[in-house]
């Protein structure tokens, strides 16, 4: 046994550059975090307090009240767009969009990668051209199409047009191509047909990828703004993010703007996707950074 007191471990000198590194990171973290803390603080005080003093370093006692009014008090005329209703719509959009994207994308990618198909090249180009043009540049005609099909103010109209791009398909295609060739060969010798191979082997193998895709797509769907703004005009169909504009208009028009309620709604719009991203960080980062390869 060596006597530890006689051979003290040399203490690493405190390095200047290390302190700088941490300082810069802390400043960066604050830059990101302070706006959220401000929103959080104003949800705990009364509106009058906020207007008089602005955000302070005090936590008030109005959180419950603000939460209740955000969740159950409607802001429009119809009385339908309560926070709860918008939360539900946001969840329907986020989950519906993510599921739709994944299911349709996986099916198409499977067809493209694992089948001998005569018009495969044509299908490939038809599908992947959609990566080139974001929804924003074809928003008006898309609206007209939705209108013609009678999809305004429906969940179908909200979700399906957003699925009309190939991000998930592209991602799954890349992943399927990286799956060893021999796996499908072994499966064929083991007597698995195309459906069995997909369900027994490919889907279980893709679990992590599906999870990563789900997180990315959920956040993407939840955060949609322009399309929901156009396609939903009935207040009962508003999502939280779609409702933001109405909040800003409410704040403009009144004498005592309801900051507590509005900021609470903003907070409710922020938290679910942020929590998902934080909790499933490693999957999310993997999915995001690998999708460009």
């Amino acid at each position: 046994m060596t006597d530890t007191t006689s051979t003290p471990i040399a203490k690493r000198p405190l390095k200047w550059t290390h302190v700088m590194d941490h300082l810069i990171l802390i400043l960066g973290a604050l830059f990101m975090l302070v706006p959220l803390l401000m929103v959080l603080q104003t949800t705990t005080t009364t509106d009058l307090e906020t207007i008089k003093n602005g955000p302070e370093f005090v936590i008030g006692d109005q959180f419950d009240d603000n939460f209740m009014s955000a969740m159950f008090q409607a802001s429009g005329f119809s009385g339908e767009n309560t926070g709860l209703r918008m939360l539900m719509n946001s969840l329907i959009l986020g989950i519906g969009f993510a599921l739709g994207k994944i299911v349709i994308g996986m099916m198409a990618a499977y067809a493209l990668v694992y089948f001998r198909l005569r018009f495969a090249t044509l299908a490939f180009w038809l599908i992947f051209t959609t990566l080139l043009l974001p929804l924003e540049v074809r928003i008006l005609p898309s609206y007209e199409v939705a209108q013609k099909l009678g999809l305004l103010n429906t969940y179908t109209g909200l979700i399906v047009p957003l699925i009309a791009s190939a991000t998930a398909t592209f991602f799954f295609r890349q992943f399927f191509r990286s799956v060893p060739e021999e796996l499908v060969e072994a499966a064929r010798i083991d007597g698995a047909g195309p459906v069995k191979f997909f369900i027994d082997i490919l889907v279980p193998l893709s679990q992590t990828m599906i999870a990563a895709m789900f997180i990315i797509m959920f956040v993407f769907g939840w955060n949609q703004y322009l399309w929901p703004t156009m396609v939903t005009t009935e207040e009962g169909m508003f999502t939280l993010v779609r409702g933001i504009k109405q909040l800003t208009q409410d704040l403009e028009g009144t004498n005592i703007p309801e900051y507590g309620r509005a900021n609470m709604l903003a907070l409710i719009a922020i938290l679910p996707p942020v929590l998902v991203v934080i909790f499933f960080q490693s999957w999310f980062v993997k999915g995001l950074t690998e999708s460009d390869k």
Binding site: Y110, A111, V184
Partner: peptide, 27 residues
Amino acid sequence: MKRAGFATRWLPILLLLPQLAIIAVFF
């Protein structure tokens, strides 16, 4: 395409159909 891809005719078309239909109508 994998070198030992399936030769089934109708299944890949069926698999591609939802994607193609959606992008045709909404893209």
